[in-house]
Computed example of a mutant assay.
Amino acid sequence: MGVSGSGKSTVGELLAERLQVPYAEADSFHPPANIRKMSAGTPLDDEDRRPWLDAIAGWLSERDGRGGVVSCSALRRRYRDRLRASGAAMFFLHLDGSEELIAQRLQGREGHFMPRSLLRSQFASLEPLEPDEHGTALAIGGTPQQVTERALAALAP
């Protein structure tokens, strides 16, 4: 989980590869209307997110104990609660970095529908993991491989 540009897709793919489990990119679950809205610089509201979160929860429940990694912003507690309602066991890795660092990353990113202008709204919406949520925050400094190693260490029993 984390804001756009925090490295969710990159680290998610590396983590899934290392764990030898399927990977899903949450952006691929967005209906076309959501992508059009974000591409136009308009933040999604909770009504927009509902079918998207339900589709991700469906993918998670299909894992049926076999494991998987999905990269999803999951910025608010209620979104994470909706994902947990799938019944799948989950561990949230919050890829955490400063707004300045992530803005720099977004400036160099090409070919993604999420404009840099929505970053501030994402940080405003972000609700860090609470103590009763199964997960941890990971600093995004370093290479994607280093972040992945920290993620693997956080997942170790």
Rank of each mutant, 00 (worst) to 15 (best):
H94F: 09
R120S: 11
A89G: 12
T10R: 10
A33L: 09
R18W: 02
V11A: 11
L106D: 05
V69L: 01
F91V: 15
R78E: 13
G67C: 11
F92W: 13
L15G: 01
A55D: 14
A24S: 12
G141I: 03
S6T: 09
R63N: 12
S71H: 05
D96F: 10
A55G: 14
A55R: 13
A89T: 14
T42A: 12
L119M: 07
D45R: 12
H30T: 11
E17Y: 03
E62R: 14
F113I: 10
P22S: 13
G135S: 04
L155C: 03
R82A: 15
S98L: 06
Q107N: 11
A137E: 10
S28I: 06
P31I: 05
S61A: 15
P144F: 12
D54R: 15
H112P: 03
W52N: 05
T148M: 11
Y23G: 04
F113D: 06
G97F: 01
G12E: 00
T136G: 02
E13V: 15
G141W: 00
K37D: 02
G7L: 02
R36N: 10
T42K: 09
L106T: 05
L118Q: 08
V11N: 04
L118R: 03
R77Y: 06
S28Q: 11
I102W: 02
W52I: 10
E133C: 10
E17G: 14
L118F: 10
V147G: 00
R77P: 08
G65R: 14
L118K: 01
D64Y: 09
M90D: 00
P31A: 14
A24F: 12
E110C: 03
D64Q: 15
D46I: 03
D81H: 04
Y23S: 06
G7C: 08
W59I: 13
S125Q: 11
S39R: 14
C72W: 01
G2A: 09
M38H: 04
R150C: 04
D96W: 09
E25N: 14
D132P: 01
S39P: 08
G58D: 15
E13T: 14
A124C: 08
D27M: 12
S121E: 03
R18H: 13
S86T: 02
A124M: 09
